[in-house]
């Protein structure tokens, strides 16, 4: 684990592996990384907005739970973006296949399930109020 983190910071280590790929590929990898960071920032923004702007919920601490889940998910997306960038860069330099990842599918399922749970909560609340 610590070795992985040290490798992220060691700029020369990545550059000494294999051969330098076409700069367009490296820049594309960087843009993909930035897109993931924006995804993470959007989740963090959602968490901050939920904490501030949602009305108090019928279920105790549901608002705080939503906020904390979104904040943690956003941070995880950002950390994973670094790891994926490094593995892609390494694969390009070594002429290997790009790393496959289940993370986008996992993230999609988590966000989808979270949305469905919230829809269910809103529907239940509507019928209780009526």
């Amino acid at each position: 684990m610590l070795g992985v983190i040290r490798r992220w910071f060691d700029t020369d280590e990545v550059r000494e592996t294999g051969t330098t790929p076409d700069y367009r590929f490296s820049l594309a990898n960087e843009r993909t990384f930035l897109a993931w960071i924006r995804t993470g920032l959007a989740l963090v923004a959602g968490g901050l907005a939920a904490a501030q702007f949602l009305p108090p919920m019928p279920i105790a601490h549901l608002r705080e739970g939503i906020a904390i889940a979104l904040l943690l998910l956003g941070g995880a997306v950002a950390v994973r973006a670094v790891d994926h960038w490094a593995r892609t860069e390494r694969a390009m330099r070594l002429g290997r296949d790009l790393p496959a990842s289940r993370f986008p599918a996992v993230l999609a399922i988590l966000v989808g399930v979270g949305a469905l749970v919230l829809v269910a909560a809103v529907v239940v609340q509507a019928f209780d109020g009526a």
């Binding site: 920032l41 963090v44 901050l48 997306v77």
Partner: peptide, 9 residues
């Protein structure tokens, strides 16, 4: 980005 997660928490 992680720092904003920390600030939010």
């Amino acid at each position: 980005t992680v720092a904003y997660t920390g600030i939010g928490l």
